[in-house]
């Protein structure tokens, strides 16, 4: 067993004239939370479908849990597709037991686990209802339970948060963190940068079928620091003028000072010299969105007009 849960090498996939994923490399170490980020239509779902062997890459190779994504490896994955799919006429409990059994759980075990998860996600009273009688958000939670019921080593969640209210998003986030703490690997895609910033340890930014950059989120942010500073202090702001800071912007109680002629060391020295009573002095890390725009260009966040891929 190696320490990589998913490895993509030079993966390319086209649908007719449209290239959905181009020369894509990615390693997901075991036991991390990786966010696959990109605007709609950038190739996230196609990538995930190739990892799950629903689509076969035209070129390149996909390695899943240490080998080719065959059935035995795929059964150790919990996969939540982008397009939600449930048996509408089945009862919630029965549906979950079915999915659990399909992945090799004994019936009684599947039943117990389903009950526990339903309880956890506040769906206990809905267990005997037909899935079609549930709201969209509840159906999505049911499907999430189906994804995680067999205790997979790897969770692949395609846009898991879309369509959930903030409370349920929090519940889902905490479950993802718990699974991570239990040593599981989580790959999820999203176009919501804030979400990724909160949850991910690693990110992979993708735009127009190509990987823009990937790596450890903290490291990435450190590397991408521009030298912008936020300062909060008591008293008047005259010392800033005296230090030569012309360009500044009020942000609540703080001032944001973009990178300019003065580095953050000089600024701190100026503050100490002037005996300013500082409450906060922070070298700002760029937001994920800024990093993304910086590397992919402003227009990259716009979804390209292209047909949605679906064929092998």
């Amino acid at each position: 067993m190696n320490d990589v849960a998913v490895r993509l090498e030079g993966v390319t996939k086209s649908f007719g004239a449209h290239t959905a994923v181009s020369d894509f490399d990615l390693d997901i170490p075991r036991g991390t939370i990786l966010g696959l980020l990109g605007p709609n239509g950038s190739g996230k779902t196609t990538t995930i479908r190739m990892i799950m062997a629903i689509l076969l890459p035209d070129e390149g190779s996909v390695e899943l849990l240490g080998g080719v994504p065959d059935m035995s490896r795929r059964s150790r994955v919990g996969y939540l597709p982008e397009e939600r799919g449930v048996y509408p006429k089945m009862k919630v409990q029965e549906q979950l037991v079915f999915l659990g059994e399909l992945r090799g759980l004994p019936r009684s075990d599947a039943r117990k686990r389903a009950a526990r998860w339903l309880d956890r996600l506040g769906l206990k009273d809905w267990a005997a209802k037909k899935v079609q009688d549930l709201s969209k958000g509840m159906q999505q939670k049911v499907q999430f339970i189906g994804t995680i019921l067999h205790d997979p080593d790897l969770l692949i969640l395609d846009e898991p948060f879309s369509g959930l209210d903030p409370i349920n998003q929090d519940v889902l986030e905490s479950i993802v963190r718990e699974e991570r703490a239990r040593g599981k690997t989580i790959l999820f895609s999203t176009h919501l940068m804030e979400q990724a910033e909160r949850l991910c340890e690693r990110v992979c930014l993708i735009s127009r079928a190509r990987k823009v950059l990937d790596g450890d989120l903290k490291e990435l942010k450190r590397r991408e620091r521009t030298g912008a500073v936020a300062v909060e202090f008591e008293g008047d702001e005259g010392w800033l003028d005296r230090a030569g800071v012309v360009d500044r912007e009020r942000a609540g109680d703080a001032w944001h000072i973009p990178p300019g002629r003065i580095g953050h060391r000089e600024l701190l020295a100026a503050a100490l010299r002037e005996e300013v009573s500082l409450r906060r002095f922070e070298v700002l890390e760029p937001r994920l969105h800024e990093i993304f725009v910086r590397h992919a260009g402003e227009d990259a966040t716009e979804a390209p007009m292209s047909p949605k891929g679906g064929a092998r």
Binding site: M52, I54, M71, R74, S75, V77, Y79, L80, P81, E83, G85, V86, Y87, L99, L102, R103, Q143, G146, T147
Partner: peptide, 8 residues
């Protein structure tokens, strides 16, 4: 739903 089922 087939996409989920076919993964296992």
């Amino acid at each position: 739903v087939v996409e989920v089922v076919i993964s296992s």
